[in-house]
Amino acid sequence: MINQSIAVIAAGRRQRRRRWMLVTLSLAALACILCCAMLMLGNTVYPVQDVIRALSGEQIKGVSFAVQTIRLPRMLAGLFAGFAFGVAGYIFQTMLRNPLANPNVIGITSGSSAAAVYCITVLHSNGAVVSIASVLAGLATVIVMYLLSRGKTFSIGRLILVGIAIQAMLDAVISYLLLISAQQDIPAALRWLGGSLNGSQMHELPPLIWSVIIFTPIVIVLGKHLNMLELGEQSASSLGVSTDKTRVTLIVSSVFMIALATATTGPIAFVSFLSGPIAKRLVGTGFSNIIPAGLVGANLVLAADLIGQFAFEVRFPVGIITGLLGAPYLILLLVRMNRKGEL
């Protein structure tokens, strides 16, 4: 009887593993297809062989400039920023056990955005200065949220409410900065705030790429501990998880990724909010969804950018398209949570 039960459990685990592998590989393949589409499509459609030759360094009139200078940075920015948004959103939603607890809603993105807008409109800076300011502001926002939400015990609900309040305050700061800024700085700031891959340049991407390369393995290693945190503070502690150390490591890793992604592309709406639930629906439970969530985020950004460029007569920034996708889901989620008495 016991052996039969063990066999059933093992078979179920193998089935979940196969599903995880199938979904992850499918998401990775879709991301590759979208990356190829972004390199090929534009005002002029280039064949695959010309794109490959241009990427290999061969100089082809018209093709090399378009692919290497415009399309490749845009594609890499969308790929890595989307992955960073997806991973960070999934970590916060899982760790805080609430689908509303993502960096867009609880103020982390707004903190990075406020710092970036200040650098753009007041200091007239860009590049590394904006990236550093975004990371520092994101970390400072998390620290303030954590301190304000701590009473006698740590409360997830209190943290989310404090985060929403901080987001409202920081959004007001951003509006004030736009009001007092010089007229010539406003278009750049507004374009950045809308979330856009326009104007992405290769020299701006290394901090974002390295943050994803460095911090993704860290959060993957902590994936099992993250799943245990979802069971609750006491349950995770009883299973041997150092909850404070794990939580701090995950938060710092997530903030670095999302702050640098925000500094590179602007706050692309709802990507961190949608990626985790979509990945969980596709993969199911039993395994860490960190990589699938990141791939879902990358696919959302790449697909939304292609839609914004080619589906309408007027070209729209990627943030507008993701906002149109995410807003109805947010309303539906709030309705469901209200019916269940979770609000």
Rank of each mutant, 00 (worst) to 15 (best):
Y146R: 12
Y146G: 15
L147G: 03
L147I: 12
L148Y: 01
S149N: 07
K152L: 13
S155P: 03
G157A: 09
R158K: 11
R158H: 13
R158W: 11
I160C: 04
I160K: 05
L161R: 05
G163F: 01
I164G: 03
A165Q: 02
I166E: 00
I166M: 15
L178H: 03
L178T: 11
L179D: 15
S181V: 07
S181M: 10
A182N: 11
Q184A: 13
Q184I: 14
D185N: 12
I186G: 01
A188E: 12
A189H: 05
W192Q: 15
W192E: 05
W192G: 06
L193C: 05
L193Y: 01
G194C: 09
L197S: 00
L197T: 00
Q201P: 01
Q201Y: 11
H203D: 13
P206M: 06
W210F: 12
S211F: 10
S211A: 12
V212Y: 05
V212E: 11
I213V: 13
F215Q: 03
F215L: 13
T216E: 08
T216D: 06
P217S: 14
P217Y: 09
P217C: 13
V219Q: 12
G223V: 04
K224S: 15
L229D: 05
L229Y: 04
L229Q: 03
L231C: 11
L231P: 04
L231T: 14
E233F: 08
Q234G: 04
Q234T: 08
A236V: 02
S238D: 08
S238E: 13
L239Q: 06
L239M: 14
L239W: 05
L239K: 09
G240H: 06
V241C: 08
R247T: 07
I251V: 15
S254C: 10
V255F: 06
F256H: 06
I258C: 15
T262Q: 01
A263R: 05
T264P: 00
T265N: 10
G266K: 01
G266H: 04
P267E: 10
A269M: 15
A269K: 00
F270V: 02
V271Q: 04
S272F: 02
L274Y: 01
G276W: 03
I278S: 01
I278D: 08
R281T: 08
L282E: 11
V283R: 03
G286H: 08
F287R: 14
N289R: 08
I290H: 09
I290D: 07
I291N: 05
I291V: 15
